[in-house]
Amino acid sequence: MNLENPSRENMVYMLNELQKKLTMANTSVMNPDAFELNVYEDMYDLFEMVMRKERFSINEMEAIVSELGSLRKK
Rank of each mutant, 00 (worst) to 15 (best):
M1S: 14
N2F: 11
L3M: 02
E4S: 10
E4G: 04
N5E: 15
P6C: 05
P6K: 04
S7M: 05
S7Y: 03
R8N: 12
R8Y: 04
E9S: 08
N10Y: 06
M11I: 10
V12W: 05
V12S: 05
V12H: 07
V12N: 08
Y13N: 02
Y13H: 11
L15M: 08
L15I: 02
N16C: 07
E17R: 13
L18W: 00
Q19P: 03
Q19Y: 06
L22D: 00
T23G: 04
T23E: 09
T23R: 13
T23D: 15
M24N: 11
M24A: 15
A25C: 07
A25I: 12
A25L: 14
A25E: 15
N26T: 09
N26W: 08
N26V: 11
T27G: 06
S28Y: 14
S28I: 13
S28E: 14
S28F: 13
V29R: 14
M30R: 00
N31L: 11
P32T: 03
P32L: 06
D33R: 10
A34K: 10
F35G: 00
E36T: 09
E36H: 15
L37W: 07
N38L: 11
N38C: 08
V39K: 11
Y40T: 07
Y40K: 03
E41S: 13
E41T: 13
E41N: 11
D42R: 15
D42P: 07
D42S: 14
Y44D: 01
Y44W: 08
D45N: 09
D45F: 11
D45E: 14
D45G: 10
E48R: 14
M49C: 06
M49Y: 14
V50G: 04
V50Q: 00
R52K: 15
R52L: 06
E54S: 12
R55F: 15
F56T: 00
S57E: 04
I58D: 14
I58W: 07
I58V: 14
N59A: 10
E60W: 02
E60R: 04
M61A: 01
M61E: 07
E62P: 00
A63P: 02
I64T: 03
I64R: 02
I64Q: 01
V65M: 11
V65R: 10
S66A: 12
S66L: 10
E67W: 10
E67S: 09
E67L: 11
E67G: 08
L68K: 05
L68I: 08
L68F: 02
L68A: 03
G69T: 05
G69C: 04
S70E: 12
S70R: 13
S70G: 00
L71E: 02
L71N: 05
L71P: 00
R72D: 05
R72V: 09
R72K: 15
K73S: 09
K73H: 03
K73F: 04
K74M: 12
K74S: 12
K74I: 10
